[in-house]
Design a protein around this nucleic acid. Structure first.
Lengths: 226, 226
DNA sequence: TAATACTTTGAACGAACGTTCGAACTTTTA
DNA sequence: TAAAAGTTCGAACGTTCGTTCAAAGTATTA
């Protein structure tokens, strides 16, 4: 079997033909295993800091053996990021279909993000932290998914604004929310911090109250005088 | 002149004796210049991705010439992070001394952070993004400053909680706030986004309203039934 | 001006890097 | 069971990595 083409890797395509021969299935399964181990290594050492030899050791495979499954280190990172990001967007879409209340939709967005983040912490760190590591085509494709995800969130916020007749910058609100959520990879400790549901509720409270209540007025000027 | 000891580099110590000979002054000045150029390179390529040869080129100096000013690549990153972090903490302390109102103190914390962040974007990205790059002693020292900074913020929040008789997790609130603010290095575009004051005001609004208003009650259960 | 201290450099070090390749091994197919 | 297809590997490729060092160059001091 030749090194797999870009298509169908990890079965991330939606349309048509999941007809894979037994050998193809095995190939995909082995590749997925390698991706898991590679994620561990990237999580610990960063993309630049991790060597192909590190990845080989973690996968229990020879250095050259890895190249049977993907053609470069960059492609490996791409596969990890693509799969991770696609999955989180896919799950979000499924969950959003079942809700119509604007606040609930934002809350489910937050919950989906944090649940997936904490259940796949290493992959999500690799996705968040190695944002600029991919160049050209690979980078562009991940950036496109990111833009798509961002747009979904802006849409949710705009609906919320309309429903509540609020006025604020969606861009800043969305980016603040992403910051709140994504930063979690720098501090989360399973032994110390609560689970995804509770954190999602608390962050949701902060964020929704933060953008929801009418803005306090005329205080700044008064205090500036003192 | 021997390669400088750890002490007094960048004149970041508060106590005593800023008595530097003219040659020592020149040394510090040149080192500072190198640090600025190195910050540019780390910003663009990341710590691991940047080579000493890149740094030499950016500084307009020979590869070996760099080693006259610092003994390793790691130390260089340490110097950048130490100086950046120390400065932001120092400025914060000065500004906090002049305020007593708990809300104003949180707002000035946010403003200080964002002002410094946007005025020193590259250095602050290197500080935020290369959090785990330093090992052992160097890493421990930066981590100590970070903990100190974190503790200050927790203190501000606890004061606010007491003043307003609020109940929420300071840890989660502080880390959410840091996320909001630090994530800015991934998205800020000077041409598109407003300045530090406005962003600080808007993030301050979100955060303070988010933690300030009484928590909405009994809604979750009702909605969960539907 | 001679001696001393400070600064910069080119050349080189061994180690580690990502990647390639042909041969060997294993599984599937005919 | 022989041929074909799929899989793994050791060895090596050329390059780049961080760091060192003796020598040369420049400024300061006596």
């Amino acid at each position: 079997m030749a090194v797999s083409s870009t298509q169908n890797t990890l079965a991330s395509n939606r349309q048509a033909a999941p007809v894979l021969s037994r050998t193809q299935q095995r190939f995909e399964r082995r590749l997925a295993k390698i991706l898991v181990h590679a994620t561990d290594v990237f999580y610990d050492k960063g993309y630049e800091g991790a060597s192909m030899r590190d990845l080989a050791r973690a996968s229990g495979m020879s250095l050259s053996g890895l190249y049977y499954y993907f053609e470069s280190k960059e492609k490996l990172l791409y596969l990890i990021q693509k799969h991770t990001f696609s999955t989180i967007v896919e799950r979000l879409r499924e969950r959003l279909e079942q809700l119509s209340d604007p606040e609930q939709r934002i809350r489910i967005f937050i919950l989906n993000h944090l649940e997936y983040f904490l259940a796949n912490r290493k992959a999500m760190k690799v996705l968040s932290h190695e944002d600029e590591a991919l160049k050209n085509c690979f980078g562009a494709e991940i950036a496109a998914i990111k833009r798509e995800y961002y747009r979904i969130c802006v849409g949710l916020l705009d609906d919320f604004k309309r429903a509540r007749k609020l006025e604020f910058s969606s861009r800043l609100a969305v980016l603040s929310l992403f910051g709140m959520m994504n930063w979690i990879y720098t501090w989360y400790k399973p032994r110390v911090d609560s689970g995804a549901e509770e954190i999602a509720r608390e962050m949701g409270d902060i964020f929704l109250k933060g953008i929801g209540a009418p803005r306090a007025k005329a205080r700044k000027k008064k205090l500036a005088v003192n």
